[in-house]
Nucleic acid binder design. Structure first.
Lengths: 112, 112
DNA sequence: CTGTTGAATCGATAACCATCAATGCTACAG
DNA sequence: CTGTAGCATTGATGGTTATCGATTCAACAG
């Protein structure tokens, strides 16, 4: 029921990277988000959740071929980056993407 | 005159991450691109180049407060990720962004 | 209360990375 | 040819991270 790993990262800036040089503090916050996507396993995990809409942790170990602690580690990092949210239902935790974060990244990468 | 650090990373896939689960090989290639943006100094470097249009290496050490070898290290990583290209003019190297790479990332992060 | 099951945490380890001083390479000036 | 200036490379170091086994925590069933 409770949301896991509430994002610790403050909402980073909104302006596109090409519009103006990003500040030091914004860069630090944004780097956390990109770092969350910088691992192949996490990228596949995120893509699975994004394409399925909602996925239980227990259904990630198989496709990703990683141990349960490792899956938990990766979901935590993605959640702390604000890219995923986890919801506990009974004994299971279900993950889904945070669309606003995707839009934020898209805005950042927009041209002029 | 020659382009430095020709990208070693093959053009990764084009489909959005939310459309279908990304393959292992695509994930590996894409992770390289996100990893290039996962460092605060590189993010600022990239943002400076993107907003200025074209920047000489010698004009990066100051704003980024890093040594010359470190700047060279970061430009190399961004170039190998296909995000920057460097052009040698005499004794200087000028960097600019690769717009297609930004568009690729935007497409990847697009919703449904 | 007890056992079971799914997930988070801990501890350890190997691999990776950001950083800089020292050095090498390259282009130009004289 | 010699010196200089900008950039790349090397080597070393301290910090970070991906991974897993073992353990703990949480929720449910009986």
């Amino acid at each position: 029921m409770t949301e896991l790993h509430l994002r610790e990262v403050p909402d980073p800036c909104c302006e596109a990277l090409v519009d103006a040089a990003v500040s030091k503090t914004d860069a630090a916050a944004l780097a956390v988000v990109f770092a969350a996507l910088s691992d192949p396993v996490r990228l596949r995990l995120f893509s699975i959740v994004a394409s399925e809409g909602e996925v239980c942790s227990c259904n990630l170990e198989g496709p990703l071929e990683r141990s349960q602690p490792t899956i938990s580690h990766h979901t935590k990092i993605l959640a702390e980056a604000g890219l995923l949210v986890g919801e506990r239902r009974g004994r299971w935790v279900w993950w889904r993407v945070v669309p606003e974060r995707l839009e934020l990244l898209q805005r950042l990468l927009a041209r002029s």
